[in-house]
Simulated scan of single mutants.
Amino acid sequence: MAILVSAFLIGIIAGLRAVMAPALVSWAAGLGWLNLEGTSLHFFSSAITRWLFSLGALGELVNDKLPKTPSRKIPPQFITRVVTGALSGAAIGASRESLVGGLLAGAIGAVAGTLGGAAFRGWLSRTISNDLPAALIEDAIAIFGGLLIVSHL
Rank of each mutant, 00 (worst) to 15 (best):
F44V: 04
A28M: 05
M20R: 08
S71D: 05
G146N: 04
L36W: 05
T39V: 11
V83D: 06
S6P: 00
L9S: 02
A21D: 00
I141P: 09
S45K: 15
E138H: 03
P75L: 04
S88N: 07
F53P: 05
T39N: 07
T127A: 14
A29H: 06
G56D: 08
L136R: 00
R96Y: 00
S151L: 15
A23T: 11
R96G: 01
L4H: 09
R72D: 07
N130M: 10
V100D: 00
R81Y: 07
A107R: 04
G32K: 13
P70Q: 04
L58C: 13
P75D: 07
I128L: 13
K73A: 14
F44M: 11
L41Q: 10
V100R: 05
R81F: 07
A110W: 02
G146E: 00
G145V: 09
I128G: 12
G106Q: 03
G89Q: 03
L55P: 11
F144L: 09
P75W: 05
N35K: 12
R50I: 10
V82H: 03
W27Y: 06
W27S: 02
G102C: 03
L55M: 14
A90Y: 01
L16W: 02
L148E: 02
S151Y: 15
F44N: 03
F8S: 06
N130E: 15
G113H: 06
S98A: 12
H42R: 15
T84K: 07
R81K: 09
I128A: 10
L103I: 05
T80S: 10
R96A: 06
S46L: 10
N35H: 12
F144S: 03
V83H: 10
F78L: 13
A91Y: 02
L34Y: 07
G109W: 01
G32C: 12
F144G: 01
W33F: 15
G85L: 07
N63G: 11
F44R: 08
L136T: 10
T84W: 07
R126N: 15
N35Q: 08
S45V: 11
S151P: 12
R121W: 09
A23I: 05
R50M: 11
S129Y: 15
V83Y: 12
I137D: 13
L16Q: 03
P133E: 15
L52D: 07
P133I: 12
W33C: 01
L103Q: 02
I13N: 01
A2I: 09
N130C: 12
T84S: 08
L24I: 09
